[in-house]
Amino acid sequence: MADEGGRLAVRAAPGASADAILLPEAGGPLRVRVTAPPEDGRANEAILVLLARALGQPRSSLELLRGASARDKLIAISRG
């Protein structure tokens, strides 16, 4: 989940049948499913939008730090 620096570890599943945020398994990363395909950054953007909505933050307060082309991602959350 989020650490002291406002970072969130996420395990992505693009191309899912529905958008969803799932609870992590025993200390693992948050799991996020999005319907967007993993092409041209569309899944990454969908993940950021979904997380921002769930956190009640503007999309601009989230930034993808690592994992643009991987399932495991690190997202920074700043105060919006």
Rank of each mutant, 00 (worst) to 15 (best):
G5K: 13
G6R: 06
G6S: 13
G6I: 10
G6N: 10
R7K: 13
R7T: 07
R7H: 12
L8P: 07
L8Y: 14
L8T: 11
L8D: 10
A9T: 13
A9D: 11
V10P: 05
R11P: 00
R11K: 09
A12L: 14
A12T: 15
A13T: 08
P14T: 06
P14H: 03
G15D: 13
G15R: 04
G15V: 05
G15T: 04
A16S: 14
S17L: 09
S17V: 04
A18C: 03
A18K: 07
A18R: 09
D19I: 00
A20H: 02
I21L: 09
L22I: 07
L23S: 11
E25I: 10
A26D: 14
G27P: 06
G27A: 07
G27I: 08
G28P: 09
G28A: 10
G28I: 07
P29M: 13
P29T: 10
P29Q: 12
P29F: 07
L30V: 15
L30C: 06
L30T: 13
R31M: 13
V32I: 11
V32K: 02
R33F: 09
R33N: 14
R33V: 01
R33D: 13
V34N: 09
V34T: 09
T35L: 01
T35M: 07
T35C: 07
A36E: 12
P37Q: 15
P38W: 04
P38G: 11
E39P: 00
E39A: 14
D40F: 15
D40A: 15
D40Y: 10
D40I: 00
G41L: 03
G41N: 12
G41A: 04
G41E: 02
R42Y: 00
A43L: 08
A43I: 06
N44R: 08
N44S: 12
E45P: 00
E45N: 08
E45Q: 15
A46N: 13
A46S: 14
A46D: 13
A46T: 12
A46L: 11
I47T: 05
I47V: 15
I47M: 14
I47P: 01
I47K: 00
L48D: 01
L48W: 01
V49L: 14
V49R: 15
V49F: 04
L50N: 07
L50C: 09
L51Q: 09
L51F: 09
L51Y: 08
L51M: 13
A52E: 08
A52I: 11
A52L: 05
A52P: 07
R53V: 04
R53N: 11
A54Q: 11
A54F: 11
L55C: 10
L55W: 10
L55N: 07
L55H: 05
G56V: 03
G56R: 11
G56T: 03
Q57N: 06
Q57S: 11
P58V: 04
P58H: 05
P58M: 01
P58L: 02
R59L: 09
S61L: 02
L62C: 02
L62E: 01
E63R: 09
E63C: 07
E63Y: 02
L64G: 02
L64V: 02
L64Y: 00
L64I: 01
L64D: 01
R66L: 10
G67S: 04
G67T: 08
G67D: 02
G67W: 02
A68W: 00
A68V: 01
S69W: 03
A70S: 11
A70E: 12
A70I: 00
A70F: 01
R71D: 13
R71K: 10
K73Q: 14
L74P: 08
L74S: 12
I75Y: 05
I75R: 10
